Amino acid sequence: SADYSSLTVVQLKDLLTKRNLSVGGLKNEWVQRLIKDDEES
């Protein structure tokens, strides 16, 4: 899986927004959300 934890907050928020995922919570929660989205898609 991609190394989301190395991305900036701005990059992570951009990815979350593009995938229609929530940008609520902490940075590590966003990373988990993106990883989960990868596994489900």
Rank of each mutant, 00 (worst) to 15 (best):
T8D: 12
S1W: 12
L21H: 02
K27Q: 09
K18Y: 03
L15E: 11
Y4S: 03
L26W: 08
V23E: 08
E40T: 12
K36H: 10
Q11G: 04
T17P: 02
L34K: 00
R19I: 04
L34I: 05
Q11R: 01
D37T: 04
T17R: 14
L16I: 06
D38M: 05
S5G: 14
V31W: 05
R19H: 05
R19C: 05
D14P: 01
K27V: 13
S5W: 10
E29S: 05
L21E: 04
R19S: 04
D14H: 07
T17Y: 06
N28T: 08
L21S: 03
G24C: 15
S5M: 13
S6E: 12
L16P: 00
L16V: 03
S22P: 14
E29D: 15
L12N: 01
D38Q: 04
R33D: 05
E40L: 15
D3V: 06
I35W: 04
N20M: 08
S41D: 09
L12K: 01
A2F: 15
L34H: 00
S1I: 13
W30H: 06
S22N: 09
I35K: 09
T17M: 13
Y4Q: 02
N20K: 11
Q11I: 07
I35F: 06
G25H: 01
K27W: 07
S5H: 14
A2K: 13
S41A: 14
L26H: 15
L12R: 00
D14N: 09
Q32V: 09
G24M: 10
K27F: 10
A2E: 12
A2H: 13
Y4E: 04
R33Q: 07
L21R: 01
K27N: 06
L7M: 15
N20L: 07
V31D: 04
G24T: 14
V23L: 15
W30C: 07
V10E: 15
D37F: 15
N20R: 09
V23R: 07
I35L: 12
L16N: 00
V31Y: 04
K18H: 09
E40S: 12
D38S: 04
D38A: 05
V9P: 13
K18V: 08
A2M: 15
W30K: 06
V9F: 03
L12S: 01
L34S: 02
K27S: 07
R33L: 08
T17A: 12
L21A: 04
S6H: 11
T8M: 02
D38P: 00
G25R: 00
Q11P: 01
L7E: 04
V9G: 10
D38T: 02
V23Q: 13
L21Q: 01
S5E: 14
D3H: 09
G24H: 15
L15H: 04
K13N: 07
V23P: 07
L21D: 04
W30T: 04
L16C: 06
D3Y: 12
L15P: 01
Y4W: 02
W30E: 07
K36T: 10
K18Q: 11
T8N: 10
R19Y: 00
V31E: 06
V10I: 11
L7F: 05
S22F: 02
L12Q: 01
D14G: 05
L12G: 00
S41M: 13
R33E: 06
W30Q: 10
L7P: 02
V10S: 15
L26N: 15
L15F: 04
K13L: 15
K36F: 09
T8G: 08
Q32E: 14
L7A: 05
Q11S: 02
D37H: 13
Y4H: 03
S1E: 13
Y4N: 03
D3A: 06
E40W: 10
T8H: 05
E39K: 10
K27L: 13
K36G: 07
T17N: 11
Q11Y: 01
K13G: 05
E29P: 00
Q32S: 11
L34M: 03
K27E: 11
N28F: 11
K18G: 07
N20I: 03
K13E: 09
S6C: 12
K18L: 09
G24Y: 02
A2N: 13
K18M: 09
D14C: 09
Q32T: 11
L16M: 06
L21K: 02
K18S: 12
W30D: 05
S1T: 14
L16D: 03
T8L: 03
K36A: 13
S5N: 14
E29V: 00
A2W: 11
R19V: 04
D38I: 07
K13A: 07
N20G: 15
K27H: 08
G25V: 00
N28R: 05
N28Q: 10
L34A: 01
L15R: 01
L16G: 01
D3E: 09
G24L: 10
L21G: 02
V10Q: 15
G25L: 00
E29R: 02
K13W: 05
R33C: 07
S22R: 05
L15C: 09
L16Q: 02
T17Q: 14
T17F: 06
I35S: 06
S22I: 06
D38L: 07
S6Y: 08
L26F: 12
Y4T: 03
N20Q: 11
K18C: 09
K18I: 10
T8K: 00
D38E: 04
L21I: 06
D37A: 12
S6T: 10
D14E: 13
S22G: 11
E40Y: 10
L34R: 00
W30Y: 07
K18W: 01
S5R: 09
W30R: 03
I35E: 10
D3L: 07
V23S: 10
D37V: 03
E40K: 14
T8A: 05
R33G: 05
V9A: 11
L7Q: 07
S41E: 09
L26R: 11
L7R: 01
R19F: 01
T17K: 12
L26K: 13
T17E: 14
E29L: 00
S5K: 10
